[in-house]
Design a protein around this nucleic acid. Structure first.
Lengths: 208, 208
DNA sequence: GGTGTGCTACCCAGTTTCCGGTATTGTCCG
DNA sequence: CGGACAATACCGGAAACTGGGTAGCACACC
């Protein structure tokens, strides 16, 4: 038995209250301990490279560098890093991007403390538990948007007209309309406003 | 000196992690104690009526009954109840609604623990501290939407067309267009998608 | 009694969106 | 090399949106 057999955890979340809450929950279990607690994606990467934790609890929305980018950066240097994305977002696109970036699993912030601890232990043991609710989002076979289509949808949400989008992307208005037609078909809507709504709820675009 | 001179706090938030975090922060201060911790607006009202806390920490987004309604319900029975709304939303409309409902003050969830404790003590002492950032949102003299205009904007966000909105509200399409013209003027935009964006960022409409 | 506000309704004209096509180019991949 | 896909561009017509105006009715407030 080593000097410190506890599972070490790195917490990355921009809300002080959430960081404190997670620390409290983890602190109640003798087989786990908080190694570090940071508020930005950049700090998360730096902290992990300085001293790799057994598992990382990663929020998605953070300043400077978001959770997906931080996850990708960590996994690029440490392909075996165990990262649990813990966030409020439940859109299938958020989930897919996080898992593609190398997250081991994805947990919703309204999970119970017990779920969090159980998942953390399973991940540390090499498992890959996926919340049924999260799994359900992935089971729906959804047409994903291309990068260009996402960009167009973002600009629509910004409040730009087709003509303005065309000017911003240096393409013709006709092409913008083609992208929109494809977006509508993939999101199964008929108007821009409906597309924005679906895009937001599925995590394809975000506020801010 | 009474048997228990500590400031009693009622926590209302639907995220277990946030409740734990708040409990931890409060528990670190000997002049404060957590009286109860609930996850819904209904439970918050019930808990307060059963045993009024010195101050209430109230989230806005909660199931069954949201924070504004719960605040209104509590203040109706106890006009001197001290309620601190503690939420992620920073739209001026969210803030106005909460204060109108009777909240003593409004705190953003990304505040530091120290700020939270300081504000709680000040409120308990009869003060009414308002975060500078929150105050700044109120200082901008903004044209508020009428109830009908809000309803129209909600339906626009739902993805309905003018014709469908007219049918839903049992009014003519012309009237819907008049409402939209007024909405555009108040939000200082020209198109529906831009109006939705501004409405979301200002807390006039919400996802969900 | 007058004033303001909210909600309703209409007219007209111009602009934009939406939907059905077709088609070219380049890239990636088996 | 052939096929799939992404991105580009154009055509044409129907439908919807946007912006300017006027106006009636109810209700609250001073």
């Amino acid at each position: 038995m080593t000097r410190n057999p506890a599972i070490s955890v790195l917490i990355a979340d921009d809300h002080p209250i959430v960081r404190e809450g997670l620390s409290l929950i983890i602190g109640r279990h003798s087989d786990m301990r908080v190694l570090a607690s940071v508020a930005t994606g950049e700090d998360a990467v730096a902290a992990y490279l300085r001293e790799p934790a057994d598992i990382v609890l990663m929020d998605l929305q953070m300043p400077l560098m978001n959770g997906v980018e931080a996850t990708r950066a960590i996994r690029q240097k440490h392909p075996d890093a165990k990262i649990i994305v813990l966030t409020m977002y439940s859109g299938d696109e958020d989930i897919r991007r996080a898992l593609e970036a190398g997250a081991t699993t994805y947990l919703l912030k309204d999970s119970l403390s017990d779920d969090l601890i159980r998942v953390a232990r399973e991940v540390h043991a090499g498992g890959r538990p996926l919340d049924p609710e999260v799994q359900a989002r992935l089971d729906v076979p959804s047409q994903r948007l291309t990068p260009r289509e996402m960009r167009v949808l973002e600009l629509v949400f910004e409040g730009y007209r087709n003509k303005e989008i065309a000017a911003a992307l240096l393409i013709s208005e006709d092409t913008v309309e083609v992208h929109l037609k494809n977006i509508f078909a993939k999101l199964m809507v008929h108007y821009c406003t409906a597309a924005v709504r679906v895009g937001l709820s599925r995590g394809i675009i975000h506020m801010g």
